Structure formats: C-alpha cells, structure tokens
Amino acid sequence: MDNEKTENKASFFSNIVAIGKDLAALLRDFALLIIFLALLLFPETFNDIMIKAGFEEGSIIGMKWKKGIAKSDIALKEAQATIGIMQKQLDSVSKVLNEAKKTTNNPDLKKKIENVQLKNFEIEKQTELIQKSVKKTISSNAVLVENAQKAVNTTNSWGVLLGTDATLKLAQNECRIYSSKYGIQNAVIYYRQGFYLSIVLAGDRDTAGELLSKAKRRRSDSYIVPMTTWCQNSVQRDGYIECLGK
C-alpha cells in the first residue's frame, strides 16, 4: 500500500515536471515568435532597442543585428573602391611595361621587365580574391546595414556616393555623366583619404534610398553614407570639399 502511494506521488510529480517543461517550451516558442515578428515587421525599432540595451550583436532564428555594422560596411566599401582604383593603375603600368619590352633589345632589361610583370600578375590574382571576399561580405550584410542605418537615423543629412576617383578631373566628369544621363543633379565632390568622391546629398534616409536606386543604374557599387559622421571638420577648396577628419 505504501509502495502504491509512493508510486502515485512519483507519477504525480513526474506529470507536473512534464507539464512544466511543456509550458516552458511553449513560453519560449511564444517569446521567439514575438521577437521574430518584431524583427520582421519593425526591424529598425527592434535594432534600436537592442543597441540601446547594450547588445553589440546577436542572432535569433537566423536574423541578426549588430551595433556599428553600418560604419564597418562603409569602411569595406571604401576599401573596395580603393582596390578598384589601384587595379586600374596596375593595368596601366602593365601596358607601359609591355610597350617597353617590345621596343628594347637589351636582354637584361627585358628580363627585369618580365620579373616585374610576373609580380604584377601575382598581385592581380591576390587582389581579385580580396575583391571577391569583400564583395561577398558587403552583399551578405546589405539588408542588415540598411536596417541599422534606419534605426540610428539621428541625422537629417545623408549622401549617396556616386563614384571614387584618383583625380578631380575624373570626379568632375563623373558628376557630369550622372547629371546628363541619370537625372542626378547637384552632385558635390569631396576629397577624403587621398581620393575624390562624387556625392549627391539627401535630406532624409528614404530620399537617399531613391537616389541610390538611380545611381546603381550606372554603378552597382554606389552606397549611402551619413554625412555628419562620414565627413567631419570639412573645408571648402577650389572645386571640392576636403574632409579633415573621419
């Protein structure tokens, strides 16, 4: 009899524990559902809440947020543009070397040129690998970056970067092309970190998004930047604005 009572009690507590586990799982799933809907329907608000709460980054049901990702994304895109310019310059050097090799009869000089060409070829291969890696990272972060920008939209000054060039003349030509063929008027040239960048300004993030859609018709690597943090302590020069600090 005592054994039967003990077994009944054990069975009762086992059922209570099982119900408790099921209830905990149900509450967990319900909480995840609420968070999932928040990420899906209100990504900017949710991202802002998580950042203010002190979370640097996180992942729920495969959906992520990350503080500072927008800034890192801009740095990647700037690196991508710089690599692109360097590639063009490297191509120019290769063409000059080929011409020099054709015009010289000096065997020692030809050997030196061939060695330089071989090194250039290796650099080009490594550069292509880096470009692919950077492009993949930028692409995978695109939606997250957009949500992060909207969540921290504390500035009313946004810019769409139309192109990055090595000289002021090239940047001016880029602005003319966007104006005449793509309807993007009043682009401004900024000098930052050794390059000339064509920028069209927008009063808010939504307008910047519309301009970006137009800009991407010419260059797929165009992107949006928050002007108050992207170009600090600027000064007007002859034909462009120089950013004295990041």
Rank of each mutant, 00 (worst) to 15 (best):
T104A: 05
N105T: 01
N106H: 11
N106W: 06
P107V: 07
P107L: 09
L109A: 12
K110I: 11
K110V: 07
K111W: 03
K111E: 15
K112W: 08
K112M: 09
I113Y: 03
E114N: 13
E114H: 06
Q117Y: 10
Q117L: 13
N120A: 13
N120M: 13
E122P: 04
I123G: 04
E124N: 11
E124F: 08
E124T: 14
E124G: 07
E124D: 15
E124I: 13
K125Y: 12
T127G: 11
E128G: 05
E128M: 09
I130H: 08
I130L: 14
I130S: 06
I130K: 11
K132H: 09
K132D: 10
S133M: 11
K135A: 12
K135P: 01
K135E: 15
I138M: 10
S139G: 08
A142W: 06
A142I: 07
A142G: 05
V143D: 13
V145D: 02
N147D: 14
A148Y: 05
Q149T: 02
Q149R: 12
Q149K: 10
K150F: 08
A151E: 00
V152T: 14
N153G: 03
N153H: 03
N153C: 12
T154H: 12
T154E: 14
T154Q: 10
T155F: 05
T155K: 03
S157K: 12
W158R: 00
V160P: 03
V160M: 04
L161E: 05
L161P: 04
G163E: 08
T164S: 12
T164L: 07
D165G: 08
A166S: 14
L168V: 07
K169E: 12
K169C: 04
K169Q: 10
Q172Y: 00
Q172K: 10
N173Y: 05
E174L: 07
C175R: 04
I177F: 06
S179P: 00
S179Q: 11
S179M: 09
S179V: 02
S180A: 04
S180G: 00
Y182K: 06
G183Y: 09
I184M: 07
Q185P: 01
Q185H: 13
N186P: 03
A187K: 00
A187D: 04
Y191W: 03
Y191I: 03
G194L: 07
G194W: 06
L197D: 04
S198Y: 00
S198D: 11
L201Y: 10
L201V: 06
A202C: 14
G203C: 08
D204Q: 01
D204C: 01
D204A: 02
D204F: 00
D206K: 14
A208T: 01
G209Y: 05
G209W: 08
G209E: 05
G209K: 03
S213H: 04
K216H: 08
K216P: 03
K216S: 06
R217E: 15
R217W: 06
R217T: 15
R219D: 13
R219P: 02
S220W: 01
S220Y: 08
S220N: 10
D221Q: 09
Y223Q: 03
Y223E: 03
V225S: 01
T229R: 06
T229W: 07
T229F: 04
T229Y: 05
W230R: 08
C231R: 01
Q232W: 06
N233E: 14
S234H: 04
V235H: 05
V235N: 10
Q236K: 15
R237W: 02
R237K: 15
G239F: 00
